[in-house]
Design a protein around this nucleic acid. Structure first.
Length: 589
RNA sequence: CGGGAUGUAGCGCAGUUUGGCUAGCGCGCCUGCCUUGGGAGCAGGAGGCCGGGGGUUCGAAUCCCUCCAUCCCGACCA
């Protein structure tokens, strides 16, 4: 065995593997074909992750270090707000899920399996059932509340479509904290505490993000905010008010906007039918009739487990399916197929309207309800009805806000035109209320000896997703640009020519000084040409690079470059540790 | 789950249309020489159930059937 000639810490003393020659850091020159988004490409190319199955990855040493750094930031913020860390099982018995009612409603996303005795289990996608079961057994008195428990754990969701590497995996690491309070006031305090903690956590991780109002979805509950990392590759759309003093921001699934009211009262004219040959789209109809899309009623049919639903929005609007689903109270909601539409309307898509359809629940958007002398399909091919008046010509029994808010719509708080952006959801805070405590009978006795359901909240952070989101925001054409706070290592030391004894000695000396100061550094001791090591350093994204070449040996001045800035500074050897620690302290404060 | 695409060496790809000898190229890997400030050069070498199964054929990476996997676009979620 050739012994490495460098005199720095290696596995022989202290168990450290800080030499790049010994690190499992398989960088690739070419972009992997299956990676689409930049975080996925760079994670694979820079040697951070490898795929095991769709949506399932091994985290290699550097990725694992980043994850641990993010986790530790989370731990500090949770612990300082009275969170207590526990570890709950991944394997969960079906009985608990049946008790909460979610075994039947969670659907195919739940990884289900049987043990050898044929008993049903699942891999935990979330832990409300387990934690509520724990707490109902252990908490009896108001004196034990509030109680905040959290864990950082693998979670499993058999996603319809795993995507974008770590962004949407089927196995992923998540922090989830569950809060247990005596009442709504207590929950409000805890919710605010967690909201603040999340703001701290994502700031400390060096992310540009925005908390937005959101829909609570399958988990249930009332108030909820999502923390969105702003990035083009984000799967969510958020709308927000340009005014800082207003601050309104919401997921587009949740966003609201004031009803637009037509100015100038008109008299209701009698309903009549006109021929509109070949006009199936909003554009075609409005052009043919010479009207604004705002006068058109768009009728969209949805199939739900509760039957067929016809949703009505104005021609210039889109339907917000989340709002519609909520209004109908259905679990399943998808566009009805054309044949089904023909059965109910006697017509075909493009000429359907709300008048004269049977066996269908009519849900009318507020804006449609306010229209006068509007236009819609006549349920007869090549025909439309004009001068339709909602309420007179069809029922307004189910009128609701079911439209999708978009950029340019007025802010519901201050009226300014809203803006739109894409975001990656890295965290969400929920007020659950008593949904799970009631279902699972988690109760406590108050001062008067009265039994009350515990009031719950839950607060999640996608840890592995946060790592990916950080790369989405922090990269350039050469690779990753880690924020110091979560970088796998803070510094890489590169001797230009490893066979030059003077460079080697100087590099080792500097490297050991950095380690002695507690700075996390690696030494690229590989016998590679300098270009290879520079390229890899940029790709991996170390915040600081120290280069030791011939000039350094002769002048005593080392080259320090900051990845984020890209420029090079010459620093005297005596100054280098102080300079780098100053930089690290400044960046991570 | 619907729509589209792709599976050939560790990675990136060609070859498939029109079946034909021993399946190619670049990168990476191993050995040696040489080189050392932005992914060098020369020489030699290893590495393939051409996604699986079935069929057609004298003969299949190539044609047909079928299954599987992966990726992308739409409905769910941290």
């Amino acid at each position: 065995m050739k012994k490495n000639k460098l005199s720095c810490k290696d596995d022989n003393e202290g168990g450290f593997f800080l030499l790049v020659s010994k690190l499992l850091l398989p960088t690739l020159r070419e972009v992997p074909a299956e990676a689409e988004v930049v975080s996925h490409q760079l994670l694979v190319r820079a040697g951070f992750i490898r795929k095991s199955a769709a949506g399932v990855y091994t985290l290699l040493p550097l990725a694992w270090r980043v994850v641990k750094k993010i986790e530790n930031i989370i731990r500090e913020e949770m612990d300082s707000r009275d969170g207590q860390e526990i570890m709950m099982p991944i394997i969960q018995p079906a009985e608990l899920w049946q008790e909460s009612g979610r075994w039947d409603v969670y659907g195919p996303e739940l990884f289900r399996f049987k043990d050898r005795h044929g008993r049903d289990f699942c891999l935990g996608p979330t832990h409300e059932e387990i934690i509520t079961d724990l707490v109902r057994g252990e908490v009896r008195s108001y004196k034990q509340l509030p109680l905040l428990l959290y864990q950082i754990q693998n979670k499993y969701r058999d996603e319809r479509r795993p995507r974008f590497g770590l962004m949407r995996g089927r196995e992923f690491i998540m922090k989830d904290l569950y809060s247990f309070d005596r009442d709504e006031d207590g929950l409000e305090i805890t919710y605010q505490k967690m909201f603040d903690a999340y703001t701290r956590i994502f700031s400390r991780c060096g992310l540009r993000f925005r908390p937005v109002e959101a829909d609570s979805g399958a988990i249930g509950g009332s108030d909820t905010h999502e923390f969105m990392v702003l990035a083009e590759s984000g799967e969510a759309v958020v709308v927000y008010c340009p005014s800082d003093s207003c601050g309104y921001a919401a997921n587009d699934e949740k966003a609201e906007s004031p009803v637009e009211i037509e100015v100038g009262q008109q008299d209701q004219r009698p309903l009549s039918r006109v021929e509109t040959p070949g006009t199936r789209t909003v554009e075609q109809v409005t052009e043919f009739l010479g009207i604004s899309p705002k006068k058109l009623i768009k009728t969209i049919f949805y199939q739900t487990e509760k039957g067929l639903v016809a949703a009505l929005v104005r021609g210039d609007r889109d339907i917000n399916e989340v709002k519609l689903k909520k209004e109908v109270g259905s679990l399943e909601l998808e566009l009805a197929n054309p044949q089904r539409v023909e059965e109910v309307t006697g017509s075909s898509v493009g000429f359907v309207g709300p008048i004269g359809i049977k066996d269908t629940l009519l849900v009318v958007d507020q804006e449609v309800a306010g229209l006068v002398n509007a236009v819609a399909g006549a349920n007869q091919v090549d025909n439309h009805l004009v001068d339709i008046n909602p309420g007179r010509d069809f029922s307004l029994d189910r009128t609701a806000d079911i439209r999708l808010v978009k950029a340019g719509d007025p802010c519901p708080l201050c009226g300014k035109a809203l803006l739109e952006a894409r975001g990656i959801e890295v965290g969400q805070v929920f007020k659950l209320g008593t949904k799970y405590s009631s279902a699972l009978n988690a109760v406590y006795s108050d001062q008067n000896g009265q039994e009350l359901p515990i009031v719950m909240g839950c607060y999640g952070i996608g840890v592995t997703r946060t790592m990916a989101a950080s790369i989405e925001q922090n990269n350039d054409e050469n690779g990753i640009v880690w924020p110091v706070s979560i970088a796998p290592y803070q510094v890489v030391v590169i001797p230009v020519n490893i066979k030059n004894i003077d460079q080697q000695t100087m590099a080792s000396r500097v490297y050991n000084k950095l380690l002695a100061t507690g700075i996390e550094a690696v030494m690229d001791d590989r016998d590679e040409r300098p270009g290879v090591k520079f390229k890899d350093a940029d790709l991996v994204g170390y915040p600081v690079r120290v280069t030791v070449g011939g000039k350094a040996v002769s002048s005593g001045m080392l080259e320090v470059s900051i990845r984020k800035k890209g420029d090079i500074e010459m620093i005297a050897e005596d100054e280098i540790v102080r300079m780098i620690s100053d930089f690290i302290n400044k960046e991570s404060s």
